[in-house]
């Protein structure tokens, strides 16, 4: 799976505070990943895709291919998501709500 450098460069070093289910603005299911700096990443998920559990560890890198999105965390764990589409599924806003990344 290829590295997503653009997203890696933005969130590397941020600690995952929590991962929770959140409705996708477009109407489907989704995940909301909150980071320790107040930034929030929303991920539109495939129907019935499992929500990964995790929190506390810092992001080491992001890999993405097709509908697989994986946040590799320090300590060797990871958060894996099945995105709704290969693109157009991830949005990151900083603590002030300013858009940092969209795919």
């Amino acid at each position: 799976m290829a590295a997503n450098r653009k997203l890696t460069n933005l969130i590397r070093g941020r600690a995952v505070a929590r991962v929770e289910a959140a409705p996708d603005p477009a109407g489907g299911s989704g995940a909301r990943v909150a980071f320790d700096d107040g930034s929030v990443m929303t991920v539109a998920l495939q129907p019935a895709a499992p929500l990964p559990a995790g929190g506390g560890a810092r992001v080491r890198g992001v890999r993405q291919a097709g509908t697989s999105l994986t946040l590799d965390l320090e300590g060797g764990s990871s958060l894996a998501f099945r995105t709704r589409e290969p693109t157009s599924s991830v949005l990151l806003r900083d603590a002030r709500g300013v858009l940092e990344y969209a795919d």
Binding site: K6, P25, L91
Partner: peptide
């Protein structure tokens, strides 16, 4: 046609398009 859930304030910031991931070759 399909859009991102972004606002006028988002898109009118200089460098906005650079924040969006490049289209993957597979797509």
């Amino acid at each position: 046609g399909a859009t991102l859930p972004v606002t006028t304030a988002d898109i009118c910031v200089r460098g906005y398009a650079g924040k969006v991931r490049d289209v993957p070759s597979s797509v």
